[in-house]
Computed example of a mutant assay.
Amino acid sequence: MATSYADSAQAREWDRKMDEWGQPKPSPTQGPFHDYEAAALKRSAAQAAKSERELAERKALAMRINAAVDQMAVFWNLKERPE
């Protein structure tokens, strides 16, 4: 009981101070909140872009490794030179 009274008294005091300062009272929708759906969409879009980039990097890395192995095979006469 005492807590609810204190909370309501504090709220009334806050409203009084805001009115005295001439500042508009923020509505509950304007207050700080976290949009979980927007954050999840942003995270999933970032993960999709990251996975696409990683796939492209892995393909490029595989091509570079194959080229290096082919060069070593040509150097050691394990493979014919491409014409």
Rank of each mutant, 00 (worst) to 15 (best):
residue 1 M to W: 13
residue 1 M to S: 10
residue 70 D to T: 00
residue 21 W to F: 15
residue 83 E to Y: 11
residue 67 A to H: 00
residue 66 N to W: 12
residue 70 D to M: 00
residue 3 T to E: 15
residue 60 A to W: 08
residue 8 S to E: 12
residue 51 S to L: 05
residue 22 G to V: 11
residue 44 S to N: 10
residue 19 D to K: 04
residue 82 P to Y: 04
residue 44 S to M: 09
residue 58 R to C: 05
residue 68 A to Y: 05
residue 69 V to P: 01
residue 66 N to H: 04
residue 34 H to T: 08
residue 74 V to C: 01
residue 78 L to Q: 01
residue 77 N to F: 01
residue 13 E to A: 03
residue 52 E to A: 13
residue 81 R to P: 00
residue 7 D to A: 01
residue 42 K to S: 11
residue 63 M to I: 08
residue 47 Q to M: 14
residue 39 A to T: 04
residue 81 R to M: 02
residue 59 K to R: 15
residue 81 R to K: 06
residue 48 A to Y: 10
residue 30 Q to D: 02
residue 65 I to S: 01
residue 48 A to V: 12
residue 50 K to T: 09
residue 39 A to L: 08
residue 15 D to E: 14
residue 39 A to V: 10
residue 59 K to C: 03
residue 21 W to I: 09
residue 42 K to Y: 11
residue 82 P to W: 02
residue 82 P to C: 07
residue 14 W to V: 12
residue 55 L to T: 15
residue 29 T to I: 14
residue 52 E to W: 09
residue 33 F to A: 08
residue 36 Y to D: 04
residue 77 N to T: 06
residue 73 A to D: 02
residue 60 A to T: 09
residue 58 R to A: 15
residue 43 R to F: 06
residue 61 L to H: 15
residue 2 A to M: 05
residue 22 G to R: 09
residue 60 A to C: 05
residue 54 E to H: 07
residue 15 D to M: 05
residue 19 D to S: 05
residue 63 M to G: 07
residue 32 P to E: 11
residue 9 A to Q: 04
residue 31 G to N: 14
residue 23 Q to H: 11
residue 44 S to V: 08
residue 8 S to G: 03
residue 46 A to W: 08
residue 13 E to K: 02
residue 72 M to D: 08
residue 73 A to C: 15
residue 58 R to P: 06
residue 83 E to W: 06
residue 34 H to Y: 06
residue 57 E to S: 02
residue 79 K to S: 01
residue 54 E to A: 11
residue 20 E to L: 15
residue 31 G to H: 14
residue 24 P to E: 05
residue 50 K to S: 15
residue 25 K to G: 02
residue 62 A to H: 06
residue 23 Q to G: 03
residue 39 A to H: 06
residue 24 P to N: 05
residue 31 G to F: 09
residue 72 M to W: 04
residue 43 R to V: 10
residue 16 R to Y: 10
residue 72 M to E: 07
residue 45 A to C: 08
residue 43 R to H: 14
residue 71 Q to E: 14
residue 82 P to S: 05
residue 63 M to W: 15
residue 71 Q to G: 11
residue 59 K to P: 00
residue 66 N to S: 08
residue 52 E to C: 07
residue 67 A to E: 04
residue 60 A to G: 07
residue 61 L to D: 10
residue 81 R to H: 01
residue 30 Q to Y: 08
residue 80 E to S: 00
residue 1 M to P: 06
residue 76 W to M: 02
residue 75 F to G: 04
residue 30 Q to I: 08
residue 49 A to F: 10
residue 80 E to G: 01
